[in-house]
Design a protein around this nucleic acid. Structure first.
Lengths: 125, 125
DNA sequence: CTGAGACCTGACATCCGTGTGAGGGGCAAG
DNA sequence: CTTGCCCCTCACACGGATGTCAGGTCTCAG
């Protein structure tokens, strides 16, 4: 599979895929002429990378963790384990924050909607 | 209260406070000489701003929402209401993502810890 | 073989929140 | 008045992920 296909199948841009490789998160087989080729597993890998990015992990962190994700069951150096738990804790904190903020927004939305039931249309679109 | 005090009480940097003002998220009374002065309420406001930032909202969005947060119960233009709900949905999605990722990490951590119980010390610190 | 389209590298551009430094003014205590 | 500290504005820098452009090469269908 070439980079364009991988991009299409993962929803990542070609640029991003190259960036992932540059940062050591994603490997590729290079053809004689230097073109990147990927196996099926690359799809999952990229999706995982995207997932990690989506929860606010940084490229460096992901690059550090990913090798140990793939061959799971293998030994994980203590430093990596620490980072792993650090990220998990960060995620927990983030979850709490999200929950709190969700409540704030929700209250606000409810108030507004109630107010709107009283005097519906308004020209301030 | 002057900007330094506010910074200290909220944990935001002076720089950030000025930035918040510049982006229309935070107002200040200016003394004749141009120095910023804040009331007690500014503390809550800044904390709220920080909270919003912490869940990934962008400055523009926050600036758009905040005015309606303060005088809650007031009319909220439909556009703002839409943004409000959009943000809430985004937060919900983000929460799911976090939960999924948390599981991934957790599984990884558990596997590693179990592996470590088998053959403890390792020199790859 | 040829041409279209996908790919390569390298570099510069963007956005966003923040840091930082320069150069200057305000204000209160001694 | 002076000293020391806080404040002001302006402006440039950064980091991270991505976009985009330029100039060149590869691949495959026709």
């Amino acid at each position: 599979m070439r980079i364009g296909d991988l991009a299409q199948r993962t929803g990542a841009s070609v640029r991003s895929l190259r960036y992932y490789e540059e940062q050591g998160m994603l490997a590729s087989q290079r053809s004689a002429s230097g073109q990147r080729h990927y196996g099926e597993d690359a799809v999952c890998r990229v999706l995982l990378i995207k997932q990690f990015f989506a929860v606010g992990m940084t490229g460096k962190v992901i690059a550090a963790l990913l090798p140990h994700v793939k061959d799971s069951g293998e030994r994980c150096p203590p430093a990596v384990l620490r980072q792993l738990t650090a990220e998990r804790d960060r995620i927990d904190a983030q979850s709490d924050e999200l929950a709190r903020t969700r409540q704030t927004l929700d209250a606000l939305i409810r108030t507004t909607e109630e107010a709107m039931r009283g005097a519906p249309p308004m020209n301030t679109t």
